[in-house]
Design a binder for these strands. Structure first.
Length: 289
DNA sequence: CACTTGACCTGTCCGC
DNA sequence: TGCGGACAGGTCAAGT
Protein backbone atom coordinates (compact mmCIF):
# COMPACT_ATOMS: atom_id res chain seq x y z
CA UNK A 1 0.00 0.00 0.00
CA UNK A 2 1.11 2.88 1.54
CA UNK A 3 3.58 5.05 -0.22
CA UNK A 4 4.57 8.51 0.89
CA UNK A 5 1.17 10.20 0.25
CA UNK A 6 -0.78 7.48 2.04
CA UNK A 7 1.52 7.42 5.06
CA UNK A 8 1.45 11.22 5.18
CA UNK A 9 -2.35 11.12 5.11
CA UNK A 10 -2.37 8.70 8.04
CA UNK A 11 0.15 10.89 9.85
CA UNK A 12 -2.03 13.97 9.51
CA UNK A 13 -5.07 12.04 10.67
CA UNK A 14 -3.32 10.68 13.74
CA UNK A 15 -1.96 14.12 14.51
CA UNK A 16 -5.46 15.50 14.79
CA UNK A 17 -6.84 12.45 16.59
CA UNK A 18 -4.40 11.16 19.20
CA UNK A 19 -1.98 13.91 20.21
CA UNK A 20 -2.24 14.34 23.99
CA UNK A 21 -3.89 10.97 24.54
CA UNK A 22 -2.46 8.63 27.14
CA UNK A 23 -1.86 4.98 26.34
CA UNK A 24 -3.54 2.69 28.82
CA UNK A 25 -2.91 -0.79 27.42
CA UNK A 26 -2.00 -2.59 24.23
CA UNK A 27 -2.57 -6.06 22.86
CA UNK A 28 -0.86 -7.76 19.97
CA UNK A 29 -1.49 -11.08 18.28
CA UNK A 30 1.85 -12.10 16.82
CA UNK A 31 5.44 -11.47 17.80
CA UNK A 32 6.11 -10.57 14.20
CA UNK A 33 3.77 -7.58 14.21
CA UNK A 34 5.19 -6.11 17.42
CA UNK A 35 8.64 -7.64 17.93
CA UNK A 36 10.47 -7.29 21.25
CA UNK A 37 7.44 -5.65 22.78
CA UNK A 38 8.22 -7.36 26.09
CA UNK A 39 9.69 -5.45 29.00
CA UNK A 40 9.73 -1.91 27.72
CA UNK A 41 5.98 -1.85 27.27
CA UNK A 42 5.17 -1.61 30.95
CA UNK A 43 7.72 1.07 31.63
CA UNK A 44 7.65 3.22 28.53
CA UNK A 45 4.39 2.60 26.69
CA UNK A 46 1.70 2.28 29.34
CA UNK A 47 1.02 5.71 30.79
CA UNK A 48 2.88 7.49 27.97
CA UNK A 49 1.35 10.56 26.35
CA UNK A 50 1.44 10.93 22.56
CA UNK A 51 3.34 14.13 21.89
CA UNK A 52 4.03 14.12 18.13
CA UNK A 53 3.36 12.14 14.95
CA UNK A 54 6.14 12.23 12.41
CA UNK A 55 6.87 10.56 9.09
CA UNK A 56 10.12 9.62 7.39
CA UNK A 57 9.80 7.94 3.99
CA UNK A 58 7.00 5.38 4.45
CA UNK A 59 7.64 5.04 8.18
CA UNK A 60 5.32 6.52 10.82
CA UNK A 61 6.84 7.71 14.10
CA UNK A 62 4.54 8.11 17.07
CA UNK A 63 6.58 10.03 19.60
CA UNK A 64 5.83 9.53 23.28
CA UNK A 65 6.43 11.53 26.44
CA UNK A 66 8.67 8.76 27.79
CA UNK A 67 11.44 9.47 25.26
CA UNK A 68 10.30 6.37 23.39
CA UNK A 69 8.78 6.25 19.93
CA UNK A 70 6.47 3.78 18.25
CA UNK A 71 7.94 3.15 14.81
CA UNK A 72 5.39 1.75 12.36
CA UNK A 73 5.79 0.37 8.84
CA UNK A 74 2.53 -0.45 7.06
CA UNK A 75 4.25 -2.29 4.17
CA UNK A 76 1.62 -3.51 1.67
CA UNK A 77 -1.64 -3.81 3.58
CA UNK A 78 -1.20 -2.02 6.90
CA UNK A 79 -3.83 0.30 8.34
CA UNK A 80 -3.84 2.54 11.39
CA UNK A 81 -7.48 3.08 12.26
CA UNK A 82 -8.79 5.12 15.16
CA UNK A 83 -12.19 4.94 16.79
CA UNK A 84 -13.57 7.08 19.58
CA UNK A 85 -14.76 5.94 22.99
CA UNK A 86 -18.33 5.72 21.70
CA UNK A 87 -17.35 2.89 19.36
CA UNK A 88 -19.32 -0.22 20.17
CA UNK A 89 -17.23 -3.42 20.13
CA UNK A 90 -17.78 -5.38 16.93
CA UNK A 91 -19.83 -2.64 15.27
CA UNK A 92 -19.20 -1.72 11.65
CA UNK A 93 -16.78 1.12 11.24
CA UNK A 94 -18.73 4.37 10.97
CA UNK A 95 -16.84 5.62 7.96
CA UNK A 96 -15.95 3.05 5.39
CA UNK A 97 -16.58 -0.22 3.70
CA UNK A 98 -12.91 -1.19 3.68
CA UNK A 99 -13.03 -1.51 7.44
CA UNK A 100 -15.75 -3.70 8.82
CA UNK A 101 -15.63 -4.54 12.46
CA UNK A 102 -12.82 -3.63 14.82
CA UNK A 103 -10.90 -5.51 15.80
CA UNK A 104 -11.10 -7.98 12.94
CA UNK A 105 -9.00 -10.93 11.81
CA UNK A 106 -6.36 -8.60 10.36
CA UNK A 107 -5.90 -6.68 13.62
CA UNK A 108 -2.32 -7.12 14.81
CA UNK A 109 -2.05 -4.51 17.56
CA UNK A 110 -4.71 -2.71 19.56
CA UNK A 111 -3.83 0.43 21.52
CA UNK A 112 -6.35 1.58 24.09
CA UNK A 113 -6.17 5.12 25.43
CA UNK A 114 -7.22 6.15 28.91
CA UNK A 115 -10.26 7.99 27.53
CA UNK A 116 -11.59 4.76 26.04
CA UNK A 117 -10.72 5.55 22.42
CA UNK A 118 -8.70 2.98 20.48
CA UNK A 119 -6.14 2.76 17.70
CA UNK A 120 -5.97 -0.44 15.63
CA UNK A 121 -2.97 -1.56 13.60
CA UNK A 122 -4.46 -3.88 11.01
CA UNK A 123 -2.38 -5.76 8.46
CA UNK A 124 -3.81 -8.49 6.31
CA UNK A 125 -0.49 -9.82 5.01
CA UNK A 126 1.55 -9.46 8.22
CA UNK A 127 4.43 -7.77 6.40
CA UNK A 128 4.10 -4.64 8.50
CA UNK A 129 5.36 -4.10 12.03
CA UNK A 130 5.36 -1.76 14.98
CA UNK A 131 8.39 -1.35 17.24
CA UNK A 132 8.93 0.52 20.49
CA UNK A 133 12.34 2.18 20.51
CA UNK A 134 14.07 4.93 22.45
CA UNK A 135 13.47 8.08 20.42
CA UNK A 136 17.17 8.80 20.34
CA UNK A 137 17.83 5.43 18.69
CA UNK A 138 15.53 6.01 15.69
CA UNK A 139 18.22 7.59 13.50
CA UNK A 140 20.43 4.54 14.10
CA UNK A 141 17.94 2.05 12.68
CA UNK A 142 19.44 0.57 9.49
CA UNK A 143 16.59 1.76 7.29
CA UNK A 144 16.77 5.31 8.64
CA UNK A 145 20.51 5.46 8.05
CA UNK A 146 20.29 4.49 4.40
CA UNK A 147 17.03 6.13 3.30
CA UNK A 148 17.33 8.98 0.79
CA UNK A 149 15.99 12.54 0.98
CA UNK A 150 12.32 13.47 1.26
CA UNK A 151 11.17 14.41 -2.24
CA UNK A 152 8.64 17.00 -1.09
CA UNK A 153 11.00 19.03 1.09
CA UNK A 154 10.99 22.63 -0.14
CA UNK A 155 14.76 22.78 -0.43
CA UNK A 156 15.11 19.51 -2.36
CA UNK A 157 16.17 20.51 -5.86
CA UNK A 158 15.97 18.92 -9.27
CA UNK A 159 19.76 18.76 -9.37
CA UNK A 160 19.94 16.97 -6.02
CA UNK A 161 17.32 14.54 -7.30
CA UNK A 162 19.31 13.72 -10.43
CA UNK A 163 22.53 13.32 -8.44
CA UNK A 164 20.97 10.64 -6.23
CA UNK A 165 20.77 8.29 -9.20
CA UNK A 166 24.49 8.05 -9.82
CA UNK A 167 24.60 5.04 -7.47
CA UNK A 168 22.20 3.11 -9.71
CA UNK A 169 23.49 3.81 -13.22
CA UNK A 170 23.14 0.36 -14.70
CA UNK A 171 19.65 -0.52 -13.56
CA UNK A 172 16.27 0.58 -14.91
CA UNK A 173 14.86 3.96 -13.96
CA UNK A 174 11.86 2.23 -12.38
CA UNK A 175 14.02 0.04 -10.12
CA UNK A 176 16.04 3.09 -9.12
CA UNK A 177 12.92 5.11 -8.29
CA UNK A 178 11.67 2.29 -6.06
CA UNK A 179 15.04 2.18 -4.24
CA UNK A 180 14.44 3.95 -0.93
CA UNK A 181 18.11 4.86 -0.63
CA UNK A 182 17.84 6.99 -3.79
CA UNK A 183 14.75 9.01 -2.85
CA UNK A 184 12.39 8.34 0.07
CA UNK A 185 8.78 7.31 -0.20
CA UNK A 186 8.35 6.39 -3.86
CA UNK A 187 6.47 3.14 -4.50
CA UNK A 188 4.85 1.41 -7.43
CA UNK A 189 1.96 3.80 -7.95
CA UNK A 190 3.86 7.08 -8.00
CA UNK A 191 6.83 5.64 -9.89
CA UNK A 192 4.51 4.71 -12.78
CA UNK A 193 2.62 7.99 -12.57
CA UNK A 194 5.76 10.14 -12.57
CA UNK A 195 7.40 8.22 -15.43
CA UNK A 196 4.26 8.64 -17.52
CA UNK A 197 4.22 12.35 -16.69
CA UNK A 198 7.84 12.70 -17.77
CA UNK A 199 7.35 10.49 -20.87
CA UNK A 200 10.13 8.15 -19.77
CA UNK A 201 9.84 4.40 -20.29
CA UNK A 202 10.34 2.51 -16.98
CA UNK A 203 12.81 0.10 -18.60
CA UNK A 204 15.17 2.87 -19.67
CA UNK A 205 18.57 2.43 -18.05
CA UNK A 206 19.45 5.18 -15.60
CA UNK A 207 22.62 6.01 -17.51
CA UNK A 208 20.57 6.89 -20.62
CA UNK A 209 18.20 9.27 -18.82
CA UNK A 210 18.99 12.89 -19.71
CA UNK A 211 19.20 15.87 -17.33
CA UNK A 212 16.05 17.23 -18.91
CA UNK A 213 14.24 13.93 -18.29
CA UNK A 214 15.40 13.79 -14.66
CA UNK A 215 14.01 17.27 -14.21
CA UNK A 216 10.68 16.14 -15.68
CA UNK A 217 10.54 13.08 -13.42
CA UNK A 218 11.37 15.25 -10.41
CA UNK A 219 8.68 17.79 -11.29
CA UNK A 220 6.00 15.23 -11.97
CA UNK A 221 6.83 13.07 -8.95
CA UNK A 222 6.41 16.08 -6.68
CA UNK A 223 3.21 17.07 -8.46
CA UNK A 224 1.54 13.65 -8.26
CA UNK A 225 2.53 13.13 -4.63
CA UNK A 226 1.28 16.57 -3.69
CA UNK A 227 -2.00 15.98 -5.51
CA UNK A 228 -2.36 12.56 -3.90
CA UNK A 229 -1.91 13.97 -0.40
CA UNK A 230 -4.65 16.49 -1.25
CA UNK A 231 -6.88 13.62 -2.31
CA UNK A 232 -6.11 11.55 0.78
CA UNK A 233 -3.92 8.99 -1.03
CA UNK A 234 -4.74 6.01 -3.24
CA UNK A 235 -7.06 3.20 -2.19
CA UNK A 236 -6.53 0.27 -4.51
CA UNK A 237 -7.24 -2.54 -2.16
CA UNK A 238 -6.98 -2.09 1.56
CA UNK A 239 -5.69 1.41 2.21
CA UNK A 240 -7.69 3.70 4.49
CA UNK A 241 -6.71 6.71 6.57
CA UNK A 242 -6.79 7.03 10.36
CA UNK A 243 -10.54 7.61 10.24
CA UNK A 244 -11.14 4.51 8.16
CA UNK A 245 -11.82 6.50 5.00
CA UNK A 246 -10.51 5.75 1.51
CA UNK A 247 -8.39 8.16 -0.50
CA UNK A 248 -9.42 9.23 -4.00
CA UNK A 249 -6.16 9.63 -5.92
CA UNK A 250 -7.03 6.60 -8.08
CA UNK A 251 -9.76 8.75 -9.66
CA UNK A 252 -6.96 11.00 -10.89
CA UNK A 253 -4.38 8.36 -11.87
CA UNK A 254 -3.21 8.63 -15.46
CA UNK A 255 -1.71 5.14 -15.99
CA UNK A 256 -1.60 3.16 -12.75
CA UNK A 257 -4.00 0.20 -12.97
CA UNK A 258 -5.51 1.69 -16.12
CA UNK A 259 -4.34 -0.97 -18.58
CA UNK A 260 -6.75 -1.29 -21.52
CA UNK A 261 -7.94 2.30 -21.09
CA UNK A 262 -6.95 5.33 -23.15
CA UNK A 263 -3.86 7.38 -22.33
CA UNK A 264 -5.25 10.74 -21.17
CA UNK A 265 -2.59 12.54 -23.22
CA UNK A 266 -2.67 10.78 -26.60
CA UNK A 267 -5.49 8.22 -26.50
CA UNK A 268 -3.26 5.18 -27.07
CA UNK A 269 -4.29 2.11 -25.08
CA UNK A 270 -2.35 1.79 -21.83
CA UNK A 271 -0.39 -1.42 -21.38
CA UNK A 272 0.79 -3.39 -18.39
CA UNK A 273 4.18 -5.09 -18.22
CA UNK A 274 6.67 -6.25 -15.58
CA UNK A 275 9.66 -4.13 -14.70
CA UNK A 276 11.86 -4.62 -11.64
CA UNK A 277 9.58 -7.50 -10.70
CA UNK A 278 6.58 -5.19 -10.34
CA UNK A 279 3.42 -4.67 -12.36
CA UNK A 280 4.16 -1.59 -14.46
CA UNK A 281 1.83 0.62 -16.47
CA UNK A 282 2.81 2.65 -19.51
CA UNK A 283 1.51 4.45 -22.55
CA UNK A 284 3.43 2.69 -25.36
CA UNK A 285 3.20 5.83 -27.51
CA UNK A 286 4.31 8.43 -24.94
CA UNK A 287 6.95 6.23 -23.32
CA UNK A 288 9.41 4.46 -25.59
CA UNK A 289 12.49 2.45 -24.63
C1' DC B 1 29.94 -2.83 -4.48
C1' DA B 2 25.75 -3.09 -7.92
C1' DC B 3 22.16 -5.74 -9.26
C1' DT B 4 18.45 -9.46 -9.39
C1' DT B 5 15.55 -12.73 -7.43
C1' DG B 6 13.01 -15.00 -3.94
C1' DA B 7 10.89 -14.86 0.54
C1' DC B 8 7.82 -13.05 3.80
C1' DC B 9 1.90 -13.63 4.32
C1' DT B 10 -3.17 -13.60 3.29
C1' DG B 11 -6.82 -12.80 0.18
C1' DT B 12 -8.83 -12.33 -4.29
C1' DC B 13 -9.47 -13.05 -8.95
C1' DC B 14 -9.14 -15.61 -13.23
C1' DG B 15 -9.03 -19.67 -16.09
C1' DC B 16 -9.86 -24.47 -16.34
C1' DT C 1 -18.61 -24.88 -7.37
C1' DG C 2 -13.75 -26.18 -6.78
C1' DC C 3 -8.94 -25.76 -7.37
C1' DG C 4 -4.41 -24.08 -8.82
C1' DG C 5 -1.76 -20.31 -10.01
C1' DA C 6 -0.75 -15.51 -10.51
C1' DC C 7 -0.86 -11.34 -8.42
C1' DA C 8 -1.29 -7.36 -4.84
C1' DG C 9 0.73 -0.58 -2.84
C1' DG C 10 7.31 -2.98 0.37
C1' DT C 11 11.61 -4.37 1.98
C1' DC C 12 15.28 -7.61 3.12
C1' DA C 13 18.41 -11.53 2.68
C1' DA C 14 20.69 -14.18 -0.30
C1' DG C 15 22.38 -15.12 -4.68
C1' DT C 16 25.19 -13.89 -9.03
Amino acid sequence: MPELPEVETVRRGLESLIIGKIIKTTQHDTEKSFPNASADIEAFLYGATVIAIRRRAKVLLIELSTQYTLMVHLKMTGQMVYVGSDYRFGAGHPNDSLVNTLPDRSTRVTIEFTDGSQLFFNDQRKFGWMKLLPTIEIPNVDFMKKVGPEPLEADFTSQQFADRFTRRKRTTIKAALLDQSVVAGVGNIYADEALWGAKVHPQRLVQTVTDQEFESIYTDLRAVMTLSIEKGGSSNHTYVNAEGKRGSYMDFARVFRREGLACPRCGTTIEKLRVAGRGTHICPHCQVV
